[in-house]
Amino acid sequence: MFSPRGPSLGELCVQALSSVEHGYDLLAPKFDYTPFRTPSSILGATTEVLSTFGPFGRGLDVCCGTGAGTLVLRPLCTRGFTGVDFSAGMLGQARVAHPDGTWVRADARAMPFAAGFDLAVTFGALGHFLPAERPALFAGVHRALRPGGLFAFPVGTLPPATSVAHWVTLGFDVAMRVRNAVWKPPFVMYYRTGAVPAVSADLAAAGFTVEAVALTGLGEHSDGSPRCRLVLARKHA
């Protein structure tokens, strides 16, 4: 799962016992050599769907990390793109890898943008926000978009209870809750708190019109449901 250039087990343990921000600062130089980086298959499937709505003007990558989302924004956005993240380490890697972008350090729950973007995306970040924090996150994205702007992100669907993946993700979330109950600072990362219906309800409350489309190219669970959906949230014009 890890490249030889990726982090050691010891480094991962130190990261896991840190805060989210400091943990990603530590992991940043080796992050792109881990399975935590958004796979190219997801980026490609997202680009394919969004290309039917574009082109767009300016793009925003929320919780951009080392900049994987640029592979979606660069071909779709004619006026450039901006990435925002609270990890200085991750932003440093993004600046080196993608010097054509604009990189801003800020908490995604309090982004300093207003009506400046036509497309916003985020990849693999929702698990870092507790459900109670999503309204602030989505309100900030809504504020950052121009009227009619689109916020898009893939969400992995919960596997059926008969699958190994169901129990692996459940076990991970339970382990993280135990870790956060006994160790401070917390490291928030949960796989099962961002189901499409709950996320869609929060987006609607923030002022978006929401739909979700299956990313069929990414496969299906054993019960025939898609492994991943793309949430499309449109700010009212």
Rank of each mutant, 00 (worst) to 15 (best):
V213F: 00
F53W: 08
A125W: 12
A152Y: 05
M189Y: 15
P29S: 09
L60M: 10
R95Q: 03
R37M: 10
L215V: 12
G171P: 12
R74Y: 00
P39A: 10
E48Y: 07
V49F: 06
T34R: 04
Q15A: 15
P75V: 13
V182S: 02
D107Q: 05
L27G: 05
Q93Y: 00
F208I: 09
T122S: 15
D61T: 04
H128K: 08
S18R: 06
F138R: 03
D107C: 03
L17H: 13
T66K: 00
A214P: 10
A165Q: 15
V188N: 04
P7C: 06
V196T: 06
L119P: 07
H142L: 04
D85N: 07
P39L: 14
T193S: 06
T102D: 02
G44D: 15
R37K: 14
F123W: 05
T102V: 11
E11T: 04
D118C: 11
L130F: 01
G156Y: 11
A161P: 03
T52C: 10
G80I: 04
E21F: 04
T122G: 11
F56D: 00
L126W: 06
A233M: 08
A198H: 07
L27H: 09
A125Y: 09
G127W: 10
R109F: 01
F2V: 12
S40D: 14
L91E: 09
A204K: 13
Q15R: 15
R109P: 00
L73T: 13
F117K: 01
V182K: 02
L126Q: 06
V14W: 05
T70V: 10
G10A: 14
H22C: 09
G124E: 08
F36A: 15
A198E: 13
T47G: 15
R105F: 00
T34Q: 07
E21T: 14
P135L: 07
V196H: 01
R37N: 03
P39R: 14
V188H: 04
V174Y: 03
G149E: 01
A233S: 11
A206Y: 02
G44M: 12
T70S: 07
D202R: 14
R234S: 07
G149L: 01
T38M: 13
A181C: 03
G207T: 10
P185E: 02
A206W: 03
G80H: 03
L203R: 05
L73N: 07
V196I: 10
V84T: 13
L26C: 01
T169Y: 15
A94W: 01
G140K: 08
A97H: 05
D173I: 06
L230E: 13
A233G: 08
V196G: 01
V168Q: 15
V196P: 00
L218W: 03
G217S: 12
L12M: 13
P160Y: 04
T162G: 04
T70H: 02
A28V: 08
L91R: 06
G57K: 10
L215Y: 09
E48C: 06
F81T: 05
T52F: 05
R58E: 08
D100W: 01
G171F: 08
S200F: 08
V155M: 13
A88G: 12
L130G: 02
P7E: 10
R179V: 07
T38K: 07
P29A: 05
Q15W: 11
G148S: 09
G65C: 04
R134L: 08
A45G: 13
H128M: 08
T34C: 12
R146S: 08
P112T: 06
L73H: 07
S87K: 04
S19V: 14
V196D: 01
